[in-house]
Amino acid sequence: MNIKKHIPNFITCLNLASGCLGIAFATSNHLVWAAYMIGIAAVFDFLDGMFARLLNVRSEIGKQLDSLCDMVSFGVLPGFILFGILKLGIDPRIEFREFIPYVAFLIPIFSALRLAKFNIDERQTDSFIGLPTPANAILIGALPLIINIQIKSDPTLYHALLNALLNTNFLIVLTFVMSYLLIAEIPLFSMKVKSLKFKGNEYRYILIFIAILLSIFLKFIAIPLIIIFYIILSIINNLQKK
Rank of each mutant, 00 (worst) to 15 (best):
N15C: 09
N2M: 08
I221G: 01
Y205R: 07
A24C: 10
A137Q: 02
L218A: 10
A26R: 08
K241T: 05
L55F: 15
I147D: 00
A52E: 04
I236E: 01
L233I: 11
F25L: 06
I107N: 03
G130L: 13
L14Y: 06
I236T: 10
G141W: 02
L143C: 00
E98N: 12
P134C: 02
M50Q: 10
D121R: 11
L207H: 05
Q64K: 13
L213I: 15
G62P: 12
E98S: 10
Q124K: 08
V193P: 02
P92H: 13
L139M: 14
S195R: 11
I38R: 04
L88W: 08
F80H: 05
Q240S: 07
Q64C: 00
Y102V: 06
N15V: 12
I210V: 14
H30W: 12
W33H: 10
N201K: 09
E98K: 07
G75C: 04
I138L: 09
C20G: 03
I149S: 01
L171W: 09
L86G: 07
F229Q: 07
Y230A: 02
I228C: 09
S195N: 15
I236A: 07
Q124A: 02
D66S: 09
S234N: 11
D154E: 14
Q240T: 05
A26K: 12
C20I: 15
P78T: 09
S127I: 00
D121N: 14
I232T: 05
R58I: 02
F10V: 05
I100L: 12
A164T: 12
L214T: 12
F46W: 14
T175F: 09
E122V: 09
G19V: 09
D91V: 10
A222G: 06
P8S: 01
K117N: 09
K242R: 13
I206Q: 00
M50T: 15
R97L: 02
D70Q: 12
R58F: 00
L162A: 08
P134Y: 04
L165H: 07
A52R: 07
K4V: 08
G75S: 03
T156N: 06
S111W: 06
I221Y: 01
F128W: 12
F51S: 06
N163I: 07
L218K: 10
L143T: 06
V177E: 01
I226T: 05
V103T: 14
S67A: 14
N56K: 15
T133K: 10
D91F: 08
L162R: 11
F44Y: 09
N9T: 13
L106A: 09
F25P: 00
N2R: 14
L233F: 13
Q150T: 11
T12P: 03
F46H: 04
Y102N: 04
Q64H: 11
I210A: 06
L161P: 04
R93Y: 05
L143Q: 02
I221C: 01
I206A: 13
I172V: 15
F51E: 00
I81C: 01
N29H: 14
M178F: 14
